[in-house]
Simulated assay, not measured.
Amino acid sequence: MTIKTLLLAVAAAGLAAPAMAQTQADWTLPRAGDWNVIGRVTDVAPTADDAIVTAAGADSGLHVDVSDSIMPTLGFTYFLTDHLAVEAILGTTRHEIRAQGGDTDVAVHKTWVLPPVVTLQYRPLTQGTISPYVGAGVNAMVFHSGDNKNGFDVDLDDGFGYALQAGADIGLKGPWSVNVDVKRVWFNTDANVNDGALRSDVHLDPWVVSVGIGRRF
Rank of each mutant, 00 (worst) to 15 (best):
K4E: 15
L7V: 10
L7R: 09
A9N: 06
A12T: 15
A16Q: 01
A17L: 07
P18I: 06
P18M: 08
A19R: 05
A19Q: 11
M20T: 01
Q22E: 14
Q24A: 13
R31Y: 00
A32R: 02
A32E: 09
G33Y: 05
W35S: 09
N36E: 12
V37Y: 12
I38P: 02
G39H: 03
R40C: 08
V41P: 00
D43C: 13
D43P: 05
V44D: 05
A45W: 03
A48G: 06
A48R: 04
D49H: 15
D49A: 13
D50K: 06
D50N: 14
A51D: 15
I52R: 04
T54R: 09
T54A: 11
A58E: 11
A58N: 11
D59R: 06
S60E: 02
L62W: 07
L62R: 11
L62N: 11
H63G: 12
H63F: 11
V64Q: 06
V66M: 06
P72N: 09
L74N: 00
F76K: 01
T81Y: 04
D82S: 05
L84D: 04
E87F: 01
E87Q: 14
L90Y: 10
G91Q: 07
T92P: 00
T93A: 13
R94P: 00
E96T: 15
I97T: 06
I97A: 08
Q100N: 08
G102R: 03
D103W: 00
D103L: 13
D103G: 13
T104P: 00
T104V: 15
V108A: 01
H109I: 02
H109V: 03
T111C: 01
T111D: 11
L114D: 09
P116R: 10
P116S: 09
V118S: 08
T119Q: 08
L120P: 11
P124N: 03
Q127D: 11
G128R: 07
G128N: 08
T129S: 14
T129R: 12
S131Y: 00
P132V: 09
P132I: 10
V134N: 04
G135L: 04
G135M: 08
G135A: 06
G137D: 05
V138P: 03
N139A: 09
A140C: 00
A140S: 08
V142Q: 13
V142E: 01
S145V: 00
D147I: 09
K149C: 00
G151S: 12
F152M: 06
D153L: 06
D153N: 15
V154C: 05
D155K: 15
D158K: 03
F160S: 10
G161H: 09
L164S: 02
Q165D: 13
Q165F: 00
A168W: 04
D169L: 13
K173C: 01
G174E: 09
W176E: 02
V178H: 03
N179D: 14
N179H: 11
V180P: 02
W186L: 10
F187V: 12
F187H: 15
F187C: 02
D190K: 14
V193H: 04
V193F: 14
D195R: 11
D195W: 01
G196R: 10
A197P: 00
S200I: 01
L204V: 10
L204S: 06
P206D: 10
W207T: 07
W207H: 05
V208K: 11
V211K: 07
